[in-house]
Amino acid sequence: ARRAFQDASDMPDLIGQAVHAAMEKSQGDVEAASAALLKRAIPDAMILLDACRKGARYDIIAHPWIPDVLKKKTARGADEIWEARPKWTRAALPPGTHEITALDINGAYLSALKTHLPLGVLEHSAGNTHDRRRAGIHLITPPPWEHEAVLPNPIGNRDEAGPLWVTEPTLRLLLRLSGTKYGLCEPPVIHESFTSGATENLLEKFRGTLRDARETAIAEDDEVTLEYVKAMYSKFVSTMGESNYNRELYRPDWMHIIRSQAFANLWTKAFKAHNENLTVVRAMGTDELHVLGDWRRVFPEGRGVTEVKVKDVYTAGVGDAEN
């Protein structure tokens, strides 16, 4: 019989144990302990993932067949997936001189672990249909974006027109924005897809464990644990594709999907700011959002993953949004 899902109280505190052992070995030398923990962040993340998956409903298929579009063309090259990374700056500010706040989105990749991930081998399909029970990568023709003056294009900065391979979060964002609730664009045209049955909760316990450890570390002013946890989730994402640093997991589809989810999450925050009458000035990468206006009535301030913190405050005027 399948084992019951492991209760959180039954989980050993692997993060706390690792930090304690590193501090003991370094005889209290914080820098040495931190350096040792950062070196083992990838294997430790995999051990934590295994512990979190014990008794889970779905098995992780660590080395599935991968379609060619997900394979690097050269050793140092890239595959064909477009992650929709935002790199947008508003072309013109309202008249006058303004104080602009650069906000930092906390734990962007940690939050992005909650995303629809394909469970099994990716299967090919053709046609302009989307099954919400499945997830993967999709060849689409994106719709025109007519709001560039006030909001970034949800597919990011792209110089070329025509079809491109995107991931599940990008497609779902475009479909959502084309629906009656938003009505911001036409639906994308889906030409073909590689998908599998999916769940949004595959990494949920892993994410929750890292989030809780992060929150405890912040509350206790424990920078060693905080940096260790950050390294665990960021390196977990960056090495789950084709990496010599993590041979236990080969899921370039997951890597692209999680990254794209982080970018989609930032776009959603930019839209929320715009919808709450803030002026969105810049959106960059996973975690950088510049706004003009009383942002504290829109976003809670703090270091938690649902909060934002101030990265910079600067003054800009007409034609000076690049400051």
Rank of each mutant, 00 (worst) to 15 (best):
H138W: 07
H138Y: 13
H138T: 05
L139I: 11
L139G: 07
L139F: 11
L139D: 10
I140H: 01
I140M: 07
I140D: 00
T141L: 11
T141Y: 11
T141W: 10
P142R: 00
P142Y: 01
P142E: 05
P142M: 04
P143E: 10
P143K: 06
P143D: 10
P143S: 12
P143M: 09
P144L: 12
P144W: 12
P144V: 09
P144A: 12
P144S: 13
P144G: 12
W145Y: 14
W145F: 11
W145N: 09
W145L: 08
E146H: 13
E146V: 12
E146D: 15
H147R: 11
H147E: 13
E148D: 15
E148R: 12
A149F: 14
A149I: 13
A149H: 14
A149P: 11
V150T: 15
V150Y: 15
L151R: 03
P152W: 03
P152F: 04
P152Y: 03
P152N: 07
P152S: 08
P152Q: 05
P152G: 05
N153T: 06
N153K: 10
N153I: 03
P154C: 05
P154S: 06
P154M: 05
P154W: 01
I155R: 03
I155H: 02
I155S: 04
I155T: 07
I155F: 07
I155G: 00
I155M: 10
G156K: 00
G156R: 01
G156C: 08
N157P: 11
N157E: 15
N157C: 14
N157S: 15
N157K: 14
N157A: 14
R158N: 12
R158Q: 13
D159G: 13
D159I: 09
D159H: 11
D159A: 12
D159C: 08
E160V: 08
E160D: 14
E160W: 08
E160S: 10
E160F: 05
A161E: 15
A161D: 15
G162A: 10
G162E: 12
G162W: 10
P163E: 07
P163W: 05
P163T: 09
L164Y: 08
L164E: 10
L164S: 09
L164P: 04
W165I: 01
W165T: 02
W165C: 00
V166Y: 01
T167M: 03
T167L: 01
E168H: 06
E168M: 06
E168A: 04
E168W: 02
P169T: 05
P169C: 04
T170I: 07
T170R: 01
T170F: 01
L171S: 00
L171T: 01
L171W: 00
L171V: 04
L171F: 02
L171A: 03
L171I: 06
R172H: 08
R172A: 02
L173K: 06
L173W: 04
L173N: 07
L173Q: 08
L174R: 02
L174W: 02
L174K: 01
L174F: 04
L175V: 05
L175G: 01
L175K: 06
L175D: 02
